[in-house]
Amino acid sequence: MKVMPGFAQQGVAENDSELLSVTDKKRLLREMLYARRFEERCYEAYVERKIGGFLHLYSGEEACAHGVLEAARIGHDYVMTSYRDHIHAIKCGSDPRAVMAELFGKEGGTCKGRGGSMHIFDVAHRFMGGYALVGGPFPLAVGIAKGLKMKGGDEISICFLGDAANNQGTFHESLNMAKIWDLPVLYVCENNLYGIGTRIDRSTAVQDQYKRAAAYDIPAVQVDGQDVEVVYAAAKKAIEHVRSGNGPYFLELMTYRYRGHSMSDSNAYRSKDEESKWLKRDPIHILRNRLIDSRDLTLSEFKEMDKAIIEEIENEVIGFAEQSPEPRVEDLEKYVLAENDPYVHGGVN
């Protein structure tokens, strides 16, 4: 099984529009570091029992969401993903304080404490949700694309899901529909090599996921998901394809999650050797080292940035989540159905 990708020639920038400026790279470095620290702080809050339920962390996969969404039009394009959703929401523009408050189950959360970690929604920023049925978002994303095509704008639908979701029927049903109706949807497969605790070669006949899109005649590439510049360049091409009305596109990003599938997972199914190999290809370190090599950043600047992020998360984000009120029990049945819908009781004739 291919546990270490070697994609040197794929996904690299072919023209200037696929290159990131130094300013953008430094901002992305900060965003990815922020994402890492946010998720690690979630881990602590979970251990402290401030966060309940299931918690799926994104540490190790930061270059995927950041590279793709950097190439998208934030707040314009529609984005959805699975239950590993905090960082996608934040990159789409969600207030990290509201995301953390949601994890704390508070009224100040993105979903007023009704959703939780697996169901972050921020419709104002066009983050259309985190969904907890593996493969569930595939058809929803095609549906959004259908609506966008009908309305005639240039927005696109972007759907992030893991490799294991591709073994659900919805994968095949959705790619088929996306293609027959040429809908503007970009599928981003974050291939972290494991479906819960089962390694991809034990669950999946074809391990290169991009090859499966060929069954639906959808263009697809596989690139290194640990290098944000590579992801950005590949996503630029993919998004240009979709936005120009050429129909769906499938982008496979080879990546790795550092934590278990969720917090209830001891990672016993992976070898230390495999983990350490991937840790050497950390997406934050790759970008940091590149910026240091090009003399656009010093190690001490990086450390300062890290320290400031940790403090900001502690003071602003955790502080906000702690202080946000609990939802009122009197509001338990709110949001089940629309309130005062005129068509429910007649009276519109």
Partner: peptide, 11 residues
Amino acid sequence: GLGIGASFVGV
């Protein structure tokens, strides 16, 4: 699911 997704954007 496609219908549901379309309904998210006003269809």
